[in-house]
Simulated scan of single mutants.
Amino acid sequence: MHTPPTSPRRRALAFLAALALACLPALALAAPPQAIRIGVATAGGGDPLTWGGSPGGVVRVNHLLEDEFKASGIQVEWLFFKGAGPAVNEALSNRQIDFAYQGDLPQVVGRANGLKTKLLLPCGARNNLYVVTPPHSDIKGIQDLKDRKVSIFRGTNGHLVAIKALAANGLTERDLKVVNLDAGSAQAALVSNGVDAAFGGYEWFKLRDQGLAKVIYTTQGQDPALTRQAALLVREEFAKEHSAEVQRVVDVFVKAADWSSDEKNRSALFDIWARSGTPVASWAAEFDQQDLAVRNSPLVDAFIIARYKAVVQDALKLKLIRREVSVDDWFDTRYLQAALKKQGLEKRWPAFDAKGRPLPGSAFVATVR
């Protein structure tokens, strides 16, 4: 039987059809996501739920991401976790969220446990830590915590700083009767005299101002190594499939960081953060004598990298993780650098060395208030 020769036109059509079939998986990967899900390592507060102390709170309250993706038909979902960093890690592991705002220690623990993530940018640096007691307590300083019942929220970014503060005063966790409580539970326990003292953050100023607690220790104004860092990260798989959307998210967070770093916006910034239920007075206390541009900078500088490396080493010593994890290849600054260039912000923030000092040539001038 004679088979007629295939015409050039038919051969071309067959080639194009085969090419289209071969490209189907790639096209599927390139399709934009239906939703962008962001996990926040705090229970949050207000209606709708939000949080403060970070440019991320500005993104949330001002609907900046929702506005960015509205025309694209992409939904933005915010999920808040009372269990803080450890609960966020579980959500990442189960692929329930795409991005996460959380502290340095839980991020390190997640990486050590095999979570495939990329750190995109700091989103709330140099957060302070405090120790509070009931108002009429005889505890005057950290040394007095020996053999006392003390609340520490283990596994969070305040945990390691608490251990460092104890060590600086000749104590370890074993010298205390430690109770592992989240922020809300710790407040209830302190007010009811269920614990003798508690470590925590800015949330304690509200109780202090109500006469229900007193601050007996603060890292504010001390060595920057005694501060906590928070950052925005993304699941590696999501970033590979949706790099364009990751860039847009980073663009929005950098824009919010720029606004949040402007001293002219200090009052307005605290008002926005107060929508989380933490009063303006608490933010004023947390940021007292501190420059917004330092606390809200998105730069991945030598200080940020050094702090993450220190967290890794401290977590290893305390057996919070079983293996060392790399840091240098964890930060993916391509999106950040692109955002800074696009928005003309390449010289917006000062860079700091590993010890938290402005690098030579930095234009940074501290503003004392």
Rank of each mutant, 00 (worst) to 15 (best):
L115D: 12
R111C: 13
G141Y: 08
L121K: 03
T117W: 04
G110K: 00
P106A: 05
Y130Q: 08
W78T: 11
Q107V: 12
T117M: 05
I142W: 02
N127V: 07
L121W: 13
L119F: 10
I97G: 08
Y101A: 12
G83D: 05
G83W: 13
P135L: 14
P86W: 04
G85R: 05
I139N: 06
T133P: 11
K82N: 14
A100D: 10
Q107H: 15
A112H: 08
A125V: 06
N94C: 07
I139V: 01
G110I: 14
D147W: 12
Y101K: 02
G114K: 04
R126T: 08
C123F: 12
C123G: 03
L92Y: 04
V109G: 10
K116L: 15
N94W: 07
G141V: 00
T117P: 01
A112K: 07
A100W: 06
G110E: 15
L105N: 04
V131I: 06
K118L: 13
I152P: 04
N128Q: 09
P86I: 00
W78N: 01
N89W: 08
G114Y: 09
F81Q: 10
A100F: 02
G124P: 00
Q102T: 04
T133D: 11
I97D: 02
N127H: 08
L119Y: 12
A100V: 02
N89R: 09
L120A: 05
D104H: 09
F99M: 01
C123N: 06
N128C: 04
N127D: 01
D138N: 12
S93Y: 13
L129K: 10
Q143R: 13
N94E: 14
A84Q: 09
A112Q: 04
P86V: 01
I97S: 07
P122V: 00
L105V: 08
V109W: 11
T117I: 12
K118E: 14
V88Y: 02
